[in-house]
Nucleic acid binder design. Structure first.
Length: 486
DNA sequence: ATCGGCTCGCGCAA
DNA sequence: TGCGCGAAGCCGAT
């Protein structure tokens, strides 16, 4: 066991630990898995040091924005997987689920009141920063956030990078120094910790652990919760076990043809983002599995890549292309969420994009749709509709089509601000990776972030255009269209 | 089938 | 100060 890297550790308050506390509390919110988890590892080591039981709280509330049966089912499946894994471990796992809005209010404070210290997941997106700040005020003992978001610690830079090229160049210089501090595959292995027999009665009565049908994400149970029932569970299973299976299948079957992933019919994309989003999979675990398959070690790192995509890691071309997604682009999204003020607001776009879009605001728009029409996949464009239907039913959308999808929404709404609102609503409500810094990053790319101008065009001004006609011409998507035509 | 132009900002070389 | 270059584009000329 290594000490938690300082660069991943953030003090949320300035209170000391209480050595007389009854347990060490790990509040699992964004890294919902037992392995490759810096925060869990840090909490476990703290528990060993203090000789106290480790209590893991994994909670799911009802009141967050756009809570659907789909997101709830995926998270609950993840909690069931964690319950299975942690049942035989030297920890007390407490899965909590609200049955009515705000039922969970006060739970963290109640558990923290008896804790030696509290460890939380650090995360720059959604409402996490505000939630962590608010929680820190209610915690009477030391509270720390641990950052397991990416291979690069969030605070390894204070800068919001303006382009993937600049960020990649930075990573090529700085990332090797962070690869030595790796999270343990199993941070609980061989730990000798006192066991907590149960929670105090007054806590257990007011906040009972999630019932079995909940963790099974049973349809009748989901139907009984006050959620958005218009978005049914996706045909994907949440949890670290399912995520790990998906990863193994991707590496074995799809990675060899990863360079063809833009063709929907090639079915070569990784499809890992739902599990990464909920922390069921760790980017460290993904990287480690890839490195093993490629028989890779740090000595193979390229000497001088200077922002180039190839020849950075010294892996096969498909593996390098995948790492550009997993590391450069994924962590660029986290970089923006952490360091770009108002990263999810329109005004955070680069000036050339905002000005160019403003200049094109008065252009005639031959097709205009409202949110409901987009959601119903009821536009004039069969390819666009097909992509929307995939999102509606599977909770994911093919990557290349996701860019086209956004570019068309920009042309088919009255203003770029409305386009942003429509994209965020559809993405965050329907996609399993909605709200992720990474999917938000894709939406803002549609609006010009990290991109460059491409002349002047009606409605979109200097933004890079994409057209369905061109996509049909250059991509293999016959089967895709047939599958999602209605 | 391939190529340049469209257009902006940045880092780096000179 | 100039130059090269950038998530995956698109169109029209050759």
């Amino acid at each position: 066991m290594f000490p938690t890297p300082e660069s991943r550790l953030r003090a949320l308050n300035s209170r000391p630990p209480d050595p007389a506390g009854e347990w060490v509390l790990y509040w699992m919110t964004m890294q919902r898995r037992p392995g490759f988890n810096f925060a869990l590892e840090h909490a476990a080591q703290s528990a060993v040091r203090l000789g106290r039981p480790l209590l893991i709280l994994e909670a799911l509330r009802l009141g967050y924005a756009r809570a659907t049966e789909r997101s709830h089912a995926f998270i609950l499946q993840g909690m069931a997987a964690n319950a299975r894994d942690l049942a035989g471990r030297p920890v007390f796992y407490f899965p909590y689920l609200e049955l009515e809005p705000d039922q969970g209010r006060g739970l963290l404070a109640a558990l923290a009141a008896r804790a030696c210290l509290v460890v939380a997941d650090d995360h720059p997106g959604f409402f996490l920063p505000q939630m962590l700040a608010a929680a820190a005020g209610q915690v009477p003992v030391q509270m720390q956030a641990v950052d397991g978001c990416g291979l690069l610690p969030l605070d390894a830079t204070g800068q919001a990078y303006p382009s993937a090229y600049a960020f990649r160049r930075f990573l090529q210089k700085e990332l090797p120094g962070h690869l030595a501090a790796w999270p343990a595959a199993d941070p609980l292995a061989g730990l000798d910790l006192p066991r907590l027999a149960g929670l105090p009665a007054e806590i257990a009565q007011r906040w009972p652990a999630a019932p079995a049908p909940a963790l099974a994400a049973a349809p009748e149970f989901l139907a009984s919760l006050p959620l958005d029932h218009s978005v049914p569970p996706a045909p994907l299973t949440g949890g670290w076990e399912a995520g790990r299976e998906r990863l193994a299948r991707f590496l074995a079957e799809r990675l060899p043809r990863y360079l063809e992933r833009n063709h929907p019919d090639a079915e070569a994309a990784s499809g890992l983002s739902p599990w990464l989003h909920f922390g069921h999979l760790s980017p460290h675990e993904v990287f480690a599995a890839l490195a093993r398959q490629e028989a890779w070690g740090p000595p193979r790192l390229g000497a001088k890549a200077a922002g180039k995509r190839e020849g950075w890691w010294g892996m096969s071309p498909p593996a390098e292309a995948f790492l550009d997604q997993l590391v450069t682009w994924r962590e660029l999204g986290f970089n923006a969420a952490r360091h770009l003020p108002a990263y999810d607001q329109y005004d955070s776009l680069p000036a050339w994009a905002r000005q160019g879009l403003a200049a094109a605001a008065g252009d005639p728009r031959p097709h205009l749709y409202r949110l409901e029409q987009f959601r119903a996949a009821a536009t004039h464009d069969q390819l666009w509709n097909a992509a929307q239907r995939q999102l509606n039913r599977e909770g994911v959308m093919h990557n290349y089509l996701r860019m086209l999808w956004g570019k068309k929404i920009l042309e088919w709404t009255a203003s770029p601000r409305e386009a942003l609102a429509v994209m965020l609503e559809l993405n965050d409500r329907l996609a399993l990776d909605g709200r992720d810094p990474n999917s938000i990053c894709g939406i803002f790319w549609v609006l010009g972030r990290y991109d460059r101008p491409f002349g002047r065009h009606p409605m979109i001004g200097p933004l890079r255009p994409m057209t369905s006609a061109s996509a049909r011409r250059k991509l293999r998507l016959k089967q895709y269209l047939a599958r999602w035509e209605a």
